[in-house]
Lab assay of single mutants.
Amino acid sequence: MSIQHFRVALIPFFAAFCLPVFAHPETLVKVKDAEDQLGARVGYIELDLNSGKILESFRPEERFPMMSTFKVLLCGAVLSRVDAGQEQLGRRIHYSQNDLVEYSPVTEKHLTDGMTVRELCSAAITMSDNTAANLLLTTIGGPKELTAFLHNMGDHVTRLDRWEPELNEAIPNDERDTTMPAAMATTLRKLLTGELLTLASRQQLIDWMEADKVAGPLLRSALPAGWFIADKSGAGERGSRGIIAALGPDGKPSRIVVIYTTGSQATMDERNRQIAEIGASLIKHW
């Protein structure tokens, strides 16, 4: 067993022997301040990774656009098919120029040779490549099948209805392509620590998230040296922004954090800054 596999296998073990965790309302004060600064709703939840206990939450059962955070769930569904012998990570998928959609920095470079399922998941999570996500959605049967996968996990809230990039439209009061912070946090925890996926697939999923290259201005910008984070960000229309993450000190994750916002007129930089400040408060009061 590799060191990384050992780390993920012992996530519940280490967490069980940690000192009790206590909620700190100071972080919620910052979440509410972010709402004021952005002029928009902000949803927040913080779960203990081992027990699933909610440590703090704000608007945990209000719907927010998922945006690209759905790509972690998508690759979880792909990995479940791999575990069941219905898919192979090494299978190569070929596609054409007509398949390319807006923001496809990886797939646009491989029109000639195609990409493997493993490479597509890596591109979808680490670079948020939209064509990679659409190609992977095709392998599982489309958005409705991802929703069905989530329902089978016990998540009857999260739903995907459309493809990239239309799913980022974020129309107010439109339930399409949305989740709730509580539902997303619980589902992410199941994917990373539950028995739904094999140990190898859980490790692969967290490795992809740990290698995320496009979430630097968010929670990662607030992390002290030595902290662990595996995350996936999302951005959408109407001032929408979000991030889902597993993080913790001492090089291992111990909490799940989900943050979503929508309806702001603020710039992307300002949305990023507010999420980073929430992260800084979380870490300060850990």
Rank of each mutant, 00 (worst) to 15 (best):
H24P: 00
E26V: 08
V29L: 08
K32C: 11
K32S: 09
D33Y: 03
D33T: 04
D36Y: 14
Q37S: 14
G39W: 14
A40H: 06
V42K: 08
Y44M: 03
E46C: 10
L47D: 09
N50H: 03
G52D: 12
K53I: 13
S57V: 14
S57Q: 10
F58M: 00
F58A: 00
R59A: 03
R63S: 13
S68L: 01
T69H: 04
F70H: 02
K71L: 00
L73A: 11
L73R: 03
V78S: 13
V78K: 14
L79S: 14
L79W: 15
R81K: 04
D83V: 04
Q86A: 06
Q86W: 12
Q88L: 13
L89C: 07
G90P: 06
G90L: 06
R92T: 06
I93S: 05
Y95G: 02
S96I: 00
S96K: 15
Q97T: 14
Q97H: 08
E102V: 05
Y103T: 15
V106I: 12
V106N: 15
T107F: 15
K109D: 15
H110N: 00
L111F: 14
T112S: 11
T112P: 12
D113T: 00
M115D: 13
T116N: 09
T116D: 08
V117C: 00
V117D: 12
R118D: 15
R118A: 01
R118Q: 12
C121M: 01
A124F: 01
I125S: 00
I125L: 00
N130L: 12
A133M: 00
N134F: 09
L135S: 04
L135A: 04
L137Q: 14
T138I: 07
I140M: 12
G141Q: 01
G141L: 04
G142H: 06
K144L: 11
A148V: 09
A148K: 13
H151K: 13
N152M: 15
G154R: 05
D155M: 08
V157I: 09
T158W: 10
R159H: 05
R159F: 00
D161S: 05
R162T: 09
W163K: 11
E164S: 01
E166L: 11
E169L: 12
I171P: 03
P172A: 10
N173L: 10
D177W: 14
A182H: 08
A183V: 11
A183D: 06
A185C: 01
T187Q: 11
L188F: 13
K190R: 15
L191K: 03
G194R: 00
L199N: 08
S201I: 11
R202Y: 05
R202E: 10
L205K: 02
I206S: 12
D207C: 11
M209P: 01
M209K: 05
K213R: 08
K213D: 14
K213G: 03
L219F: 13
R220F: 03
S221Y: 04
A222N: 00
L223K: 13
A225V: 09
A225H: 08
G226A: 08
W227C: 12
F228L: 03
D231C: 06
K232W: 01
S233F: 09
S233Y: 02
S233E: 11
G234W: 00
R238I: 08
R238C: 06
S240I: 01
R241L: 06
G242K: 04
A246N: 09
G248W: 05
G248I: 09
P249E: 02
D250V: 03
G251E: 12
K252Y: 10
P253W: 10
P253N: 10
S254V: 07
I256V: 11
I256F: 11
T262Y: 04
T262R: 04
S264T: 14
A266I: 03
T267I: 09
T267R: 13
M268C: 06
D269Y: 02
E270K: 01
R271E: 11
N272C: 01
G279S: 06
S281D: 10
I283V: 10
K284C: 11
K284S: 08
